[in-house]
Simulated scan of single mutants.
Amino acid sequence: MNHPYPLSRAALVLATTAALWWPAQASNVEPTASAALSGKQTVGSSLFRYWGFDVYQATLHAPAGFDARRFEQQRFGLALQYRRAFKGSDIAQRSIDEMQAIAPLTPQQASDWTAAMQRAFPDIKAGDELLGVHVPGSGARFYFNGQLRATVDDPAFSARFFGIWLSPQTSAPQLRTALIGAGAR
């Protein structure tokens, strides 16, 4: 049987394709929350309450010198330790609503980002922790109870998602102030 490409050339093409694909897929994603937070310190922490109910304890982890004015350009982690049970789909919808309140989303962004968060956020019970890690220029990583659960490879999503807590336009300015501490601006 005659092949249009000799076997050695096909193997070379396959190896080259794999080499180009593999680094993007195995791009140093930490498998655990503790590994993702290595080298980070607690910047601030506060209990978030809504209508008198304790919702979660939020804690911001970042390297020394974290500047809230440039949060989109810095790597950090935001941990939410839940005090109540919530459906993952409800967390995703509330996140979209908060993102829309900061600045409008296109219908495509709202649809794509809701789907991504529904995959990333499981149903939560009291005591569970979700950690989101913002990776500038790459996107977001989400950890559930210490283990990697999902990545969203979209820098615009990540900046907008973490803006829920860190943007000056947040709906929870007191929580933002508590989280960013000395980096408050």
Rank of each mutant, 00 (worst) to 15 (best):
F48E: 11
R49K: 12
R49N: 10
R49A: 06
R49F: 05
Y50R: 11
Y50I: 10
W51L: 07
W51P: 01
F53I: 15
F53Y: 14
F53W: 15
D54Y: 03
D54L: 10
D54P: 07
D54W: 05
D54F: 10
V55S: 01
V55L: 10
Q57T: 06
Q57G: 00
T59N: 04
T59C: 12
T59M: 00
H61S: 06
H61L: 09
P63D: 10
A64F: 04
G65A: 11
G65D: 11
G65Q: 08
F66C: 07
F66D: 00
F66H: 05
A68S: 15
A68M: 04
A68N: 03
R69D: 10
R70L: 11
R70H: 14
R70S: 13
E72D: 08
E72T: 09
Q73A: 13
Q73E: 14
Q73R: 05
Q73V: 05
R75E: 08
R75P: 05
F76A: 06
G77K: 00
G77H: 02
Q81T: 13
Q81M: 08
Q81F: 04
Y82M: 10
Y82W: 06
Y82D: 04
R83S: 04
R83M: 12
R84Q: 13
F86A: 03
F86Q: 03
F86T: 05
K87V: 15
G88R: 01
G88L: 10
S89K: 14
D90N: 12
D90I: 03
D90M: 13
I91C: 07
I91R: 00
I91T: 05
I91H: 00
I91A: 04
A92S: 15
Q93N: 11
